[in-house]
Design a protein around this nucleic acid. Structure first.
Lengths: 342, 342
DNA sequence: TTGTAAGCGTTATCAC
DNA sequence: GTGATAACGCTTACAA
C-alpha cells in the first residue's frame, strides 16, 4: 500500500547498477554490452518493483510523445468510427497512443473546433495530427508547421493543400452507377452531397463520368446535406420533376436514409418505383427497410494508412494519395430492375 | 520559418524578467504581486513569440497530466459514441484532454484489451481512467490503485466493485413495460441481454418488477447477445412458444433490430402481431422499419458525470451512483394496441 | 562492462 | 516586486 511511484533510481538501486544501465536495458540499446546476469538482475528488479517508465520525463528528454492526434467532426458518425478503429490499431502496433478529439467536444465558437482542440492538446503532447473530414482553419496549419508537427488530411482535401489520403470516391460512384445501368435503368438521378464536402464533389464527378461512359444523359441532380432531413427534402425535389427517374445514386448513407423516407411518404415503393444505392457500407445499411444497396470502401484501412504515413512524414513532404484497396458493391434489396419488386 | 521551439526562457528574455515570473503570470498565481506594466511586457512577449507551454515539462514537474483516459469496447457502438461526447465535453470544460481507447485497438490476446491499453498509456500520462462497459481484468484495478490513478466504472458494475456510475436501467425497463401495459398488452415477453452484462440484469429486474406491479404473469423470457443475430434467434424462440406474446420488451437496440427481422421473416407484422420496445434511443431507431419505440436515457450526461466525479475522487472513495436525469419513452410505430396496425 | 553528468522545460521555495 | 535555484525522471554522450 505505498502509493509512492517507483522510478529508475529505485530499480537501479535494487539491481545494484546505475540508472543509465537500467535505461539502456529497457530501451534495448543495441550498443549496450552487458553481462547476462546483470541484465537478469535489472529485469528482475523491474518486475519486482512493477516499474513503469514515466512518460512525461521520457517525452521531455526525447521530445517525442509517442502519441498521435486524430480530429473528427463527430463520434456519432459511424464513418469516423471505422476510421478510428483502423487508426487506433495501427497506432497501437507502432507503440503509439491515439488521442481522438471531436468538434462536438468543443465550444465551437467558430469554425470546426480544431483550434480549441489544439489548445487543449498543448505543445509537445502529440507527434502528429490526422485531420479527418475537417477542413483546415486559417492559421492552424501554419501553427502545426511552426511546431514541426506532421499532419495529414484524411478522406478530405482542402484548398489546394497537398497533404492528404483519400478514398477512390470517384470509382465508388462509378460502381454504383454501373450497377444501376446493369439493372436496366436509364434515367438515373444523383442526390449529391453538399458542395463544401470534398467527398461529395468526387462522388459527383464519378457519377458524371459513369453516365457518360454508359452513353446516358445525366439525370436530374440535386444536392443535400449529409443528413436524413436533407436527403428527404432532396428526394422530394427529385420526385416533383417532370421526368421521374427510376433510380438514384445517393452520395451518402445518411441522406439515403432520408431519401428512402421521402420515397415512402410519396406513396411509392422501393425498389419498384425507385432504386436507391448509396456510398459507404455501414452496419446499419442492412437494417434499413428495405436493406440498402451500398458501395463498401476500406475506411479502417484509410485510418491505418494515415497513421503509417504520419509516422514517416518529413517536414516538407507532399502527400496526395488515393488509397488502393477493395471497393465493392454490396447488393441488397433497395435496387432492382425498373418496375420490379424484388 | 524557424522550427525552434520557444520556451519560457525565450519569453523571459524578451520581457526582461525571470522565467519564474513568466510562469507565475501564465498560471495566474494569486500570490504574485506584479507591476501592471511588467505583466503587460510578459503577455506581449508570449503573444509575440507564440509561446505555448510544454506539456511534458509541466507534467513532469507537477505530476499532473491534464488528461483523462476512457476505455470502451468498441467505437462503432453508438451507445459509447454518446458517452464519449459527454465525457469529452466535460473534460474540455475542465481543461483536460480525453484519450479514448477501445478493445478493438488492441491485439486482445486475452480479456478486454484493457491491459494493453494501459501499457501503451504508460505511467503518468493520465490523471484518471473511466471504464465504460468493460469489466475489470484481474490485477488491473490493483495496478491503478498502486499508481494512485483514480478510476471509475461507467454504465457497468463488476464483482462487488464499489466505484461506478450507472443509469437507472431498472426504471427504464419499467417505463417500457408500463407503456405496453397501457396499450392493453397482457402477454409481454422479455428479450433479455446476456447475463454477463450488468445492464442486462438491471433491465430484467425492471421488467419483472413492472410486470408484478401490473399484476401480470411474467411472460416468456429469453436471453440473447446484444447483437442483431442474437436478437433474431431469440425472437424465433419466442414465436415458437405455445402462447405467443403480443408484445416484447427488448433489452437493447441491437438485439431489437434482429428481433424485428425475426418477426418479419416469420410472416408476421409489427406492431399488429407483435409490439416491440427497446432500451436506448439511438439516432438509428427512428430509421428502422417500422420506426422503433425506445426508452431514452441520458448517455451523454453519464459521460459528463463520470468525468466530473473522476476529477474529485479521493484514493479510497467509494462511488455507487445511479444517475439522476430524464428517462423518457419515445413512442414510434413499433408499438400499438394488440392487433392494431397503427 | 558499467558509471558520470548534463540537460530536456517547467514550477515552487526561497532569498533579495 | 522580482530573481536564483533546485528539483521532477529520464536519456545519452562520454569517461572509466
Amino acid at each position: 500500500m505505498k502509493p509512492q511511484r517507483v522510478t529508475l533510481a529505485d530499480v537501479a538501486a535494487m539491481a545494484r547498477v546505475d540508472r543509465a544501465v537500467v535505461s539502456r536495458v529497457i530501451n534495448k540499446d543495441p550498443t549496450l554490452n552487458i553481462r547476462p546476469q546483470t541484465r537478469e538482475r535489472v529485469l528482475a528488479a523491474i518486475d519486482e518493483l512493477g516499474y513503469r517508465p514515466n512518460v512525461a520525463a521520457r517525452s521531455l528528454r526525447t521530445s517525442r510523445a509517442h502519441m498521435f492526434g486524430l480530429f473528427i467532426p463527430d463520434f456519432a458518425n459511424p464513418v469516423y468510427a471505422e476510421i478510428i478503429k483502423g487508426a487506433e490499431a495501427e497506432a497501437a502496433a507502432q507503440g503509439y497512443v491515439l488521442v481522438t478529439g471531436s468538434a462536438s467536444g468543443t465550444g465551437m465558437g467558430s469554425g470546426t473546433g480544431l483550434g480549441e482542440y489544439m489548445d487543449r492538446i498543448g505543445q509537445g503532447r502529440i507527434d502528429g495530427l490526422l485531420l479527418a473530414g475537417t477542413g483546415d482553419e486559417p492559421g492552424l496549419i501554419e501553427q502545426l508547421d511552426r511546431a514541426a508537427i506532421p499532419w495529414l488530411m484524411l478522406n478530405n482535401r482542402s484548398r489546394g493543400v497537398k497533404r492528404y489520403v483519400i478514398l477512390d470516391d470517384q470509382r465508388a460512384a462509378a460502381l454504383a452507377v454501373e450497377h444501376l445501368v446493369r439493372l436496366g435503368h436509364r434515367r438515373i438521378a444523383h442526390l449529391a452531397g453538399p458542395s463544401s464536402a470534398d467527398t461529395a464533389t468526387r462522388r459527383s464527378a464519378g457519377y458524371s463520368a459513369a453516365m457518360r461512359a454508359a452513353g446516358l444523359p445525366e439525370g436530374p441532380i440535386t444536392a443535400a446535406d449529409y443528413t436524413p432531413a436533407g436527403g428527404a427534402a432532396a428526394m422530394g425535389r427529385l420526385l416533383a420533376g417532370s421526368e421521374r427517374p427510376t433510380a438514384v445514386f445517393v452520395a451518402n448513407v445518411a441522406s439515403a436514409i432520408g431519401a428512402m423516407e421521402g420515397v415512402r411518404s410519396a406513396g411509392l415503393e422501393i425498389p419498384r418505383d425507385m432504386s436507391i444505392v448509396a456510398v459507404h457500407d455501414l452496419p446499419l445499411a442492412s437494417y434499413l427497410y428495405p436493406a440498402l444497396t451500398t458501395v463498401r470502401m476500406p475506411l479502417a484501412e484509410l485510418g491505418r494508412r494515415g497513421v503509417t504515413l504520419l509516422g514517416s512524414l518529413k517536414p516538407d513532404d507532399t502527400v496526395a494519395e488515393v488509397m488502393a484497396g477493395p471497393i465493392e458493391l454490396i447488393q441488397r434489396r433497395s435496387t432492382a430492375p425498373p418496375g420490379e419488386r424484388r
